[in-house]
Amino acid sequence: GEDLPLPPGWSVDWTMRGRKYYIDHNTNTTHWSHPLESGPSSG
């Protein structure tokens, strides 16, 4: 998808195989999909 801006506290990194993933430092979790690309989340 597009390179959307990341929310505060997020960063992007790549695996050893070159796969892009996103790090949420607020909750110390990692995600394969961009936080703003996922569907609407409630709460």
Rank of each mutant, 00 (worst) to 15 (best):
G1K: 11
G1E: 10
G1L: 09
G1W: 09
G1T: 11
G1P: 09
G1R: 09
G1S: 11
G1I: 10
E2T: 11
E2I: 09
E2S: 11
E2N: 10
E2A: 10
E2D: 11
E2V: 10
E2Y: 10
E2W: 08
E2P: 09
E2K: 11
D3L: 08
D3K: 08
D3S: 10
D3Q: 10
D3T: 08
D3R: 08
D3N: 10
D3W: 08
D3Y: 08
D3G: 08
L4C: 14
L4Q: 09
L4A: 13
L4P: 15
L4R: 08
L4E: 15
L4M: 11
L4D: 09
P5E: 15
P5Y: 09
P5T: 09
P5A: 13
P5V: 08
P5M: 08
P5H: 09
P5S: 12
P5W: 14
L6P: 15
L6G: 00
L6E: 15
L6V: 06
L6F: 02
L6Y: 02
L6N: 01
L6I: 06
L6K: 11
L6D: 15
P7R: 00
P7D: 00
P7H: 00
P7F: 00
P7M: 00
P7Y: 00
P7T: 00
P8V: 06
P8Y: 06
P8I: 05
P8A: 07
P8L: 06
P8F: 06
P8K: 06
P8N: 06
G9Q: 01
G9D: 02
G9P: 01
G9E: 01
G9I: 00
G9R: 01
G9V: 00
G9F: 04
G9A: 00
G9W: 05
G9T: 00
G9L: 01
G9H: 03
W10S: 00
W10P: 00
W10I: 00
W10R: 00
W10E: 00
W10V: 01
W10M: 00
W10H: 00
W10T: 00
W10A: 00
S11Q: 06
S11G: 06
S11P: 01
S11E: 12
S11M: 05
S11T: 13
S11I: 05
V12C: 14
V12S: 05
V12E: 09
V12M: 09
V12Q: 07
V12D: 05
V12R: 04
V12F: 14
V12N: 02
V12A: 06
V12K: 04
D13L: 09
D13T: 07
D13E: 14
D13I: 07
D13S: 13
D13R: 15
D13N: 14
D13Q: 14
D13G: 15
D13V: 09
D13C: 15
W14K: 12
W14G: 07
W14Y: 15
W14H: 13
W14Q: 12
W14A: 08
W14R: 11
W14V: 15
T15P: 06
T15Q: 03
T15Y: 05
T15F: 04
T15V: 04
T15G: 05
T15E: 06
T15L: 04
T15K: 03
T15N: 10
T15W: 05
M16V: 15
M16N: 14
M16P: 15
M16D: 15
M16I: 14
M16G: 15
M16E: 15
M16T: 15
M16Y: 14
M16L: 11
M16H: 14
R17G: 15
R17D: 15
R17C: 15
R17M: 14
R17N: 15
R17H: 15
R17F: 14
R17P: 07
R17S: 15
R17K: 14
R17I: 10
R17E: 15
R17W: 14
R17A: 15
R17V: 12
G18C: 10
G18P: 01
G18M: 04
G18K: 02
G18H: 04
G18Q: 03
G18F: 04
G18A: 03
G18L: 04
G18Y: 04
G18S: 02
R19Y: 13
R19N: 09
R19A: 10
R19F: 13
R19K: 14
R19L: 11
R19Q: 13
R19H: 15
R19D: 13
R19E: 15
R19G: 07
R19P: 02
K20Y: 03
K20V: 09
K20I: 11
K20E: 05
K20R: 08
K20N: 01
K20T: 05
K20L: 08
K20Q: 06
K20H: 04
K20W: 05
K20G: 02
K20A: 06
Y21E: 01
Y21S: 01
Y21H: 01
Y21D: 02
Y21F: 12
Y21L: 06
Y21A: 03
Y21P: 01
Y22K: 01
Y22D: 01
Y22A: 01
Y22H: 00
Y22L: 01
Y22E: 01
Y22V: 00
Y22N: 00
I23Q: 03
I23D: 02
I23N: 02
I23V: 09
I23R: 08
I23C: 04
D24A: 02
D24V: 03
D24S: 02
D24N: 10
D24F: 02
D24K: 02
H25F: 08
H25G: 08
H25K: 06
H25L: 06
N26H: 05
N26T: 09
N26A: 08
N26V: 08
N26E: 06
N26G: 05
N26K: 06
N26I: 08
N26C: 04
N26Q: 07
N26R: 06
T27Y: 03
T27L: 03
T27A: 04
T27G: 02
T27I: 01
T27S: 07
T27P: 01
T27K: 05
T27F: 04
T27R: 04
T27H: 04
T27Q: 04
N28H: 09
N28I: 02
N28M: 07
N28W: 05
N28Y: 05
N28D: 07
T29L: 04
T29E: 06
T29S: 07
T29I: 05
T29G: 02
T29P: 00
T29V: 05
T29M: 05
T29H: 04
T29Y: 02
T30W: 13
T30H: 11
T30D: 03
T30P: 04
T30R: 13
T30N: 08
T30F: 14
T30I: 15
T30S: 08
H31K: 04
H31G: 01
H31A: 04
H31S: 09
H31R: 08
H31E: 01
H31Y: 08
H31Q: 07
H31V: 03
H31L: 03
W32Q: 05
W32K: 03
W32Y: 06
W32I: 03
W32N: 03
W32G: 03
S33T: 14
S33M: 11
S33H: 15
S33Q: 13
S33F: 14
S33W: 11
S33P: 02
S33D: 10
H34S: 05
H34T: 04
H34I: 06
H34M: 05
H34A: 05
H34N: 05
H34Y: 06
H34W: 05
H34K: 02
H34G: 03
H34P: 06
H34V: 05
H34Q: 03
H34F: 06
P35D: 04
P35S: 03
P35L: 01
P35I: 02
P35K: 03
P35Y: 03
P35E: 04
P35G: 01
P35V: 03
P35Q: 03
P35T: 03
P35A: 02
L36T: 07
L36I: 06
L36V: 06
L36N: 08
L36S: 09
L36E: 06
L36Q: 05
L36G: 08
L36W: 09
L36A: 08
L36H: 06
E37W: 13
E37P: 07
E37M: 14
E37L: 14
E37I: 12
E37G: 11
S38N: 12
S38K: 13
S38G: 10
S38W: 10
S38V: 13
S38F: 09
S38R: 12
S38Y: 11
S38P: 12
S38A: 12
G39I: 11
G39Y: 10
G39S: 10
G39R: 12
G39Q: 12
G39L: 13
G39T: 13
P40L: 12
P40D: 13
P40E: 10
P40K: 12
P40V: 13
P40Y: 12
P40F: 11
S41K: 12
S41C: 14
S41T: 11
S41Y: 05
S41M: 09
S41P: 14
S41W: 07
S42L: 12
S42E: 14
S42T: 13
S42Y: 14
S42A: 12
S42M: 11
S42W: 12
G43K: 11
G43A: 11
G43N: 12
G43F: 10
G43E: 11
G43M: 12
G43Q: 11
